[in-house]
């Protein structure tokens, strides 16, 4: 297991370096990479739950909560700072994650997924319908915040938010990897492989899953906050079920077995969407759908699995 992780970690380091350097050459990539990293953070949370064999089809709710926390702060209190937004988004999504988590960790598999979906759809309808407070389907603008009191020009800002996202993404990646290697992380995996044994060992599977769930909600909230700052807007779409589907999609695309899958998947997804939307404006969904089918049918371990498969078949050949 550990031996297999190493080349992937190298790939992750290269990926983070490229994200840091490439946008210096093409300025529109700054936003693209910032988005990839922010979404990768959210998908990390999905990957985490996948370790326990659970799929949340409502994780966009935490994404939306993170985004709307900044939006509400800007709308009702005003001012704001990237750091403040992140702290607030982190807190609100953690609190929500804990509340929702207390209910959902009692269930597994499809029931787990369903209940998550149900909660997220309630949130979505509230964001849609509470027009006087949320501005309905149009969403709330998030004014460009400063960082630690500094105010930036738009040109600088896109790099500031890129590097903030990069820093958080790298930290989250490292943290999640450490967590998965820790005893708690192994217990989380045990929920998938043999939950009963976990219980026999005197561990509460619910508690183990709850911890994982709250962490993944926190990651969702942080990602949502970043995306809201990058896009300068929060809309109910952030919490719609297709968004949740997209996150699971990205996790499977990248490969759910390893934390780096989140970023590999996000990079692939945003890249295809960005360029397909640019050149084939009316068929980007089609292209993404076909890519997903091919991945599922022929590379079930996702993009990062491709490499392993290639190596294994090479070895066998030798």
């Amino acid at each position: 297991m550990t031996r297999r992780i190493k080349p992937i970690t190298t790939a992750a380091v290269i990926f983070f370096l490229v994200s840091a350097v490439a946008p210096l050459f093409v300025s529109s990539w700054a936003t693209l990479f910032a988005l990839i990293l922010a979404k990768g953070i959210v998908v990390l949370g999905i990957v985490l739950l996948l370790q326990a064999g659970q799929v949340s089809f409502g994780h966009a709710m935490f994404f939306a909560i993170g985004a709307y926390t900044s939006a509400f702060w800007g709308k009702y209190i005003g001012g704001g700072d990237i750091l403040l937004y992140l702290v607030l988004g982190g807190i609100s999504s953690t609190v929500f994650g804990l509340i929702v988590g207390l209910f959902v960790v009692r269930y597994r598999e499809i029931f787990f997924g369903m209940l998550n979906l149900a909660f997220s759809m309630v949130l979505w309808s509230l964001l849609e319908k509470m027009f006087p407070y949320t501005n309905g389907a149009d969403g709330i603008r998030v004014a460009r915040p400063g960082l630690l009191g500094f105010v930036f020009t738009p040109e600088t800002f896109q790099y500031v938010i890129l590097y903030v996202s990069l820093l958080i993404a790298a930290a989250a990646f490292y943290g999640v990897q450490r967590y998965l290697e820790s005893p708690l992380g192994h217990m989380l995996r045990a929920i998938k492989s043999n939950e009963t044994r976990l219980e026999y060992l005197g561990m509460s599977a619910r508690r183990v899953l709850l911890i994982g769930y709250v962490i993944s909600a926190f990651l969702g909230g942080i990602g949502g906050t970043l995306v809201a700052i990058i896009q300068q807007i929060a809309t109910p779409e952030f919490g719609f079920w297709t968004k949740s589907g997209e996150f699971v999609f990205i996790a499977i695309l990248g490969g759910g077995a390893h934390a780096f899958g989140a970023f590999a998947g996000a990079a692939m997804f945003e890249w295809v969407r960005f360029y397909a939307a640019a050149h084939l404006a009316d068929s980007w969904q089609l292209i993404l759908g076909v890519v997903l089918i091919v991945i599922i049918l022929y590379a079930p371990n996702g993009l990062i699995g491709l490499r392993q498969r290639y190596r294994q078949s090479g070895k066998r050949g030798r």
Binding site: V55, I252, Q285, G289, V290, I293, P300
Partner: peptide, 15 residues
Amino acid sequence: DDVLQLLITFAAFMI
């Protein structure tokens, strides 16, 4: 994995 079955129908939905 169940999630793969669900996701492939998601892909079908997008297409």
